[in-house]
Amino acid sequence: MKWSWIPDHAGDLVTITLLHLRMTGTAVFFGLLVALPLGLLAYRVPRLKSVVLGVSSLLFTIPSVALFTLLLPLTGLTPTTVVVGLTVYTLVVLVRNTVEGLESVPPKVAEAARAMGYDRVRTLVTVELPLALPVIMAGLRIATVMTISLVSVGLVIGQGALGQLFVDGFQRDFGVPIIAGIVITLLLALVADALLVGVQRVLTPWHRTGR
């Protein structure tokens, strides 16, 4: 094993790690942007709930190669293709957790908000969403970790970020890039998850206090 490969390629490793992060962040961000209104719709219109949840689960079963192929005419062999695909995949967790989070709000609390003179929008923004936050954040953590590991499948169109290290390793029958890729991915997942836990603690101060 030539471990010196790692310091020799430190600059490249930093560059693709940042790319990996950027692709993950973009996919999760847009995933949340789509999932929140969809989840809200499913929560408010019970008839649509099974449809919305069904479709978001169904999308997840599309193989990534097929999904990327479908997107190729639109976005080409670019990171965008991968990001769009990953965004679609995050919905399976994000939509479901948004619905479940909103459903976890005690009915008495929503009733009290209305009885105090809150209108629909204010109730949603200042009562229901904050109370749904722990469940939504749990979904966000799963989606983020999942996406960090999934970015690598972009290697099928040459846009795998850290995943490209695996291609490199396999082609040259050289283990160091593969190990580096796995370790960095793992570290990214751990750090991202810890960060999100921290964000959740800041956003939900009422959960931090004991009796």
């Binding site: 005690p106 008495k108 609390v109 009733e111 009290a112 908000a113 009885a115 009562v127 904050p130 109370l131």
Partner: peptide
């Protein structure tokens, strides 16, 4: 209301 319906957050 019963169980007060206070805002837990």
């Amino acid at each position: 209301i019963q169980q007060s319906g206070l805002f837990p957050h």
